[in-house]
Amino acid sequence: MKEELEQIMARYPQPRSAIMPMLHLVQSYEGYVSDAGVELVAELLGLTIAQVRGVSTFYTQYRQHPAGKHHIGVCATALCAVLGGDAVYAAVSEKLGIKADETTADGLFSLERIECNAACDFAPVMMINWEFMDNMTPEKAVAILDDLAAGKPVQPERGATLTSWKENERVLAGFYDGRADEGVSAGVSSLRSTPKGGKK
């Protein structure tokens, strides 16, 4: 991990700018922002533990305890909530037997009520490992959880086949996983103005 953390630092004119991708990388190894990870980041950047914790506690994507293999986010902001996000959240919470910011005992799933995820034209929106699961319904959500629990491949509406939250944290740390060519160019709602076959 240390070597990769140093690679991240080298991307920036000033190393401290690397702290956010570094914390994403820590999560991809540890499943959360661990004490050991914070100490290493602090040492590399020449910061105090408090300075690094100050950053890691400010941003909601940094977890203070382990996430599940699959991290489920259900949008609870106004438009998604009204269009059925609350019902989707209730169904997922009941199915998994956990509430927001909890992880199932088998470590397979964690749950979060997320704020607007920039996909309102596909509402209600659910994110799994930060991939777009568009136009969600309670029934669809439960079926997806069943598939994931059974180890079946799940393809997001717009995104790459689900692997794990940890693997996607690595992408957010800036380590490309070679999977940009998976998934569609755009969902149906994105293409309302777009001529079929494109317009030159």
């Binding site: 941003y59 995820n117 994110m127 930060w130 992408v171 490309y176 940009a180």
Partner: peptide, 11 residues
């Protein structure tokens, strides 16, 4: 941060 596939396509 909450859009893994957008990050991939940009990278």
């Amino acid at each position: 941060g909450e859009v893994a596939h957008v990050a991939r396509r940009l990278q």
